[in-house]
Structure formats: C-alpha cells, structure tokens
C-alpha cells in the first residue's frame, strides 16, 4: 500500500522528538492523574431528560500553541498515526482528521479521549504508550489543521 507521511525526519531526529515529547516529569504525572478519566461527552450524544451527565472537564494545556502543534505533527509521524490516517491526517484506512468532521467529537477533550483509550475499528489506545503531554500536543496539532472549504459538494465541471 502507498503511504503518505508528512515529515521525512532522520531517525535520530525522531528519537529526539519522541524523547522530548514523551519524557515524563512529576508535573506531567500530576497532570495526567488530574486529567484522567473524564466523562465521554460530545455533541452527537443525546442526554435523557435533556440533562447532561456530570463529568470532569478536560482542558488542553497547549491550546493554540503553535510550537506544541509542531511537536504534535512530529509525533503524528513518530507514533505511526500517519500510517492509518495518512500524511497530514487526510484519511487512509483510518478516517480523515482534516475534514472538520469527527466521529467521536472534535473538542480537545474528546480528541484526547479518542487517542488515550482508542476507538472501535482498530484505533489503538495510546494512553499506555505516551504521556499526557504528548497526547495534548497531538490534539493541538489536529485542531490546527484547516478543513478544506469545498468538501460537502464535489464537482467535476
């Protein structure tokens, strides 16, 4: 199968980025503890009686941070995310992540949950393979992708 990867990084660079992104600290551990496990809640859920269940709120510590987004882009390749979702997250055997559409919700906390626990149809749980801050950098990267503006209608004229 053809593969698409965004970054052709030397092996040493990948290892360095992984080490930087995944190095655990006490602060990281404390944040991971605080962040997990929250309620799953996204717009396609319908709440019985119209009241949403209580759940912990998840906030992205890197929201809007372009340096963290660049780190997330490197992790997207280094952790083999692009092997399923395609280079740039444009979709491959796994769904597109740059179309502005989300099966399991597109808020930061919802994307975090998808990466941490995995999803059905083969999305692996990465929560045991990388620390919380690495996952947040991936979330930051994915939320930085700009959906194309011509998606809903395809035309061959």
């Amino acid at each position: 199968m053809t593969r698409t990867t965004t970054l052709g990084l030397p092996a040493a660079a990948v290892v360095f980025i992984l080490a930087a992104a995944c190095r655990g600290t006490h602060a990281d551990a404390a944040r991971a503890q605080r962040d997990a496990p929250p309620a799953v809640r996204y717009p396609s859920h319908i709440s019985a009686g119209g009241t949403a269940p209580r759940g912990a709120a998840l906030a992205n510590p890197y929201a809007g941070d372009s340096v963290a987004a660049a780190g997330g882009a490197a992790l997207f390749t280094a952790m083999n995310c692009d092997g399923c979702h395609g280079g740039g997250g444009t979709g491959w055997v796994g769904p597109s992540l740059d179309d502005g559409r989300w099966r399991y919700g597109g808020t930061a906390g919802e994307i975090y949950m998808s990466i941490y626990y995995g999803r059905r149809e083969g999305m692996p749980a990465f929560g045991g393979a990388m620390p919380s801050n690495g996952i947040w950098k991936l979330v930051t990267y994915l939320q930085s992708l700009q959906p194309p503006n011509d998606v809903p209608t395809e035309s061959w004229k």
């Binding site: 053809t2 593969r3 698409t4 990867t5 052709g8 952790m79 083999n80 092997g83 399923c84």
Partner: peptide
C-alpha cells in the same frame, strides 16, 4: 499494534 511502513509513494 501500529503501522510499520516508512514510505510516501504518490
């Protein structure tokens, strides 16, 4: 459990 590929081939 993740892909092990390493090529881009349009």
């Amino acid at each position: 459990g993740t892909p092990y590929i390493g090529a881009n081939s349009p």
